[in-house]
Structures are given as structure tokens and as C-alpha cells.
Amino acid sequence: MTGSATPMVEVRGAHKMFGDLHVLRGVDLTVAPGEVCVVLGPSGSGKSTLLRCLNELEVLTGGSVRIDGELLGYREDSAGVLHRLHPTAIAQQRSRIGMVFQRFHLFPHMTALENVMEAQVQVLKRSKREARAKAVELLDRVGLSDRMDHYPAQLSGGQQQRVAIARALAMDPEIMLFDEPTSALDPELVGEVLAVMKDLAAGGMTMVVVTHEIGFAREVADHVVFMDEGVVVEEGAPSAVIDAPTEERTRDFLSHVL
């Protein structure tokens, strides 16, 4: 094995068309293991689409995504021809990639505890006992040990998002994807979700975060990517991209959000 040389995420020449709409126009992205990568950009820049392509919720029109060296969604034979993977194999790949959505998408007919247990039992085939123990541990970690038997409708937005993070972590993912995790929250609830994410980053989790929280990017990110109109405009350390951007479009965007 090449060991540490294998990037956790490797996107090469990603193109995505929705009908005639060219959303991604050749994106390259590399995220090393344990790295926190924050993707910034105006709405419509393709950053959420890029994130959704990282776990096959959207299928790329061109280019490739590799997670920990493994090609996502296809098998490449010795002649270089791509074969689409069976949905079961794609589901198996997805189970190792955690995803947190802007609108939480907790299962409303299950309690917080059952939400975190569900995929452990159904996908990883853990016993209920094992799944429950793991769920209790994770809900405690996100500070919700007193909310385990509540249904999502009985929780605040911030609490729901923390349950959603616990639900994704329960699968022991190699990487966590966050799609604007705080955009649907009341301002006073943003902090509690960001605190959980900081804790996760400090624990060495590889994370790709699409967000408008510039403060979070500056404090936590190892690597900031600025996207506009389907291409990566500028990337690098937060001190470079956020505090000393070289591109006009980056400066323009930051002047509007800071």
C-alpha cells in the first residue's frame, strides 16, 4: 500500500450536467486523511452538487471520484472500460461516507435513539443491543443523552442536526460530508452544531464542509476551496484564501459575507 500517500477524497475533472445546465465544469479536489476541507462559494456555484457527487447522490456526467483510493460507482476493468456497479455495491460504498444535510432529514417516525440505531441494524447488521449501546454513546457525545426518546418534531433545529450527525457517525464513516449544516438553523442554535463539528475535527475525522460560516472555516479548516460557476477559483490554507485572497471573485464574495 502507498499508505499516507492515498488521499481520502480525490476528484478528477468532475463535470455535472442537469439537462442543459452545466453545474460542474471540471473540478479537481484532493482531501488528505484527517483533513478538514471547507468549500465556500455563492449559491449556484455548484458546491452542494460537488458534495452530493462525493457519495453518489448525484452521478457525475464526466470525471471521477475516488474515496480512499476506491473508484465511486464504477468498476474499471483491465482495458480501462467502466462498468456501473450494482446498486447494492453502491449502497455499500455509501455506508462508509457520512452525510449531514441542510434540512436534517431525520426519520420523523422514529425517536432520536431509533434514528441513530436504524442503519446500524439494517445496513451493518449489528445486533439491536450493540446498535443501542453505540447510539447512546454517540447521542451522549453530541450532548443529547436526555433527548434520546424524543421524536424529531419535539427537538429544536440544533438538536435535530446533532442527532443527524450522531446518525451518520454511527456507521463509523471514513469521511463526513456536511451540506450547509447550519443554514436552516435559528442564529442562536448555530453554535451548538458548530461545536460538535469542531469536536469531530479535533478527533481527526476527515471532513468536507459546504458552509457560509466563514468563522468556522478560518478556525477549523485545514484547506479552504472557493468555488464559483462550477469551477474551483482558488484554494489553499484559510489564512491565504480568506485573509489574503488573490482572485477578484473571492475578494468580492468575502466582502459580501464577512
Partner: peptide, 23 residues
């Protein structure tokens, strides 16, 4: 049922049949 529910279940690695039955 909200499309996001299916998406969340799919992102957790559930198979289509499991998503239909459980979610």
C-alpha cells in the same frame, strides 16, 4: 413522503428495498 427522507436513507447505505420498507 419527503424526497429528503429517501436521500438520507440512501446516504446511510440503505438498499432501495430497505428504504421502502423501513422509511
Amino acid at each position: 413522503v419527503d424526497k429528503g427522507q429517501e436521500e438520507a436513507a440512501r446516504a446511510l447505505g440503505m438498499k432501495e428495498r430497505t428504504i421502502l420498507r423501513r422509511i
